[in-house]
Design a protein around this nucleic acid. Structure first.
Length: 321
DNA sequence: TTCCAGGGGTAGA
DNA sequence: TCTACCCATGGA
């Protein structure tokens, strides 16, 4: 086993924990969140098929120009544990691309920060600390599967389902012979899930009625019938993107809103039980308003509605404005 | 034991 | 478009 380290340039200020642990994705397999360091570990499958361990940590070392253009400023250090020879250009580039997507380093949140500044009070914290980036997966497929696993289930159930899915279908880290159930694995590819018999798949993962939805999604992606990854860079109005997401079986209004957020579109909300109870408690004295009235709370945030809701939720305990 | 979760699909109106 | 009913699973 060999260890290499890459530096990936990040905007400044960059709140590592506030980005990586901004929502639950940091604790879903194949991630491990280590708050004490802080560090995010991920078993990661490269396009070459190699399975490696990535450990992301905040770094104050200045990255070289080749690390992403910035000569000065903070960075994220990526420790790569892998088998075999030196990483080489292609594998290193693939890791950099994955980290940039996970941390949304190419997103421009200046408009959101400007809105927070103008609101003042506890909202000022968001631009001051550089908050607003929410961890996502390296692929839209992984985000879509995980989102389906958040529907109609408590968070502990989501953690269990994703863990079982990874254990059942993910490629193992090399070196563990024989491969045991304790072997850590990467997130399954669409090909791996599609290659599993649908009934056997349902039997091996406790996804309940969601199992056929995930299997169908994987089959469509593996066959090329659904080009899910193309949605990441699709130059489409949000409404068109939302329509494409709603066409996925297992994805309804809530899941489409969550996936739009993961795709960097924040003008929609994801109305679920957490949203309803939070808005009721914070703005309506505990009385649950109609969905229309609840949505209206964030209406004037325009293209930043989801982020406004999310950071309202996260910082609800801060001093009042 | 019952209820319901970070809902969604489907049939029938 | 809206409503009622069903859907697996497991934690509370």
């Amino acid at each position: 086993m060999r260890t290499d380290e890459l530096l990936v340039a990040v905007p400044e200020p960059f709140p590592f924990a506030g980005t990586v642990h901004a929502h639950g994705w940091a604790v879903l397999a194949p991630h491990r969140w280590r708050p004490g360091e802080p560090a995010l570990e991920r078993v990661h499958r490269l396009p070459s098929g190699d399975v490696v361990t990535l450990t992301l940590r905040p770094s104050t070392d200045a990255p070289s120009p080749s690390a992403g253009g910035a000569v000065e400023g903070s960075a994220v250090a990526v420790e790569v544990r892998h088998a075999g020879e030196a990483l080489g250009f292609e594998r290193e580039a693939a890791i950099r691309d994955a980290v940039r997507r996970m941390l949304r380093l190419d997103e421009d949140l200046s408009g959101f920060h400007e809105r927070c500044r103008s609101r003042g009070g506890r909202w000022s914290r968001v631009p001051e600390e550089g908050l607003g980036r929410l961890l996502r997966s390296p692929t839209v497929f992984e985000d879509a599967v995980k989102t389906i696993c958040t529907t109609n289930v408590q968070w502990g159930g989501t953690e269990r389902m994703v863990r079982e899915l990874v254990e059942a279908c993910g490629d193992p880290l090399p070196g563990a012979v024989p491969v045991s159930t304790a072997t850590r694995r990467a997130f399954p590819t669409a090909d791996a899930i599609a290659a599993t018999d649908p009934e056997a798949f349902a039997g091996r993962v406790g996804l309940g009625y969601r199992a056929p939805y995930v299997h169908e999604l994987a089959t469509r992606v593996a066959s090329g019938a659904l080009e899910l990854e193309a949605l990441a860079d699709a130059d489409l109005p949000t409404a068109d993107l939302e329509r494409e997401l709603l066409a996925i079986r297992g994805v309804g209004a809530y899941a489409a809103g969550t996936l739009l957020m993961l795709l960097g579109r924040y003008d929609r909300l994801a109305v679920d039980s957490v949203f309803r109870s939070f808005v009721a408690e914070r703005y309506f004295d505990g009385e649950v308003p109609s969905e229309e009235i609840a949505r209206a709370v964030y209406e004037d945030w325009g293209r930043w509605r989801y982020l406004a809701y999310w950071f309202d939720l996260l910082h609800a305990g801060d001093e009042e404005d």
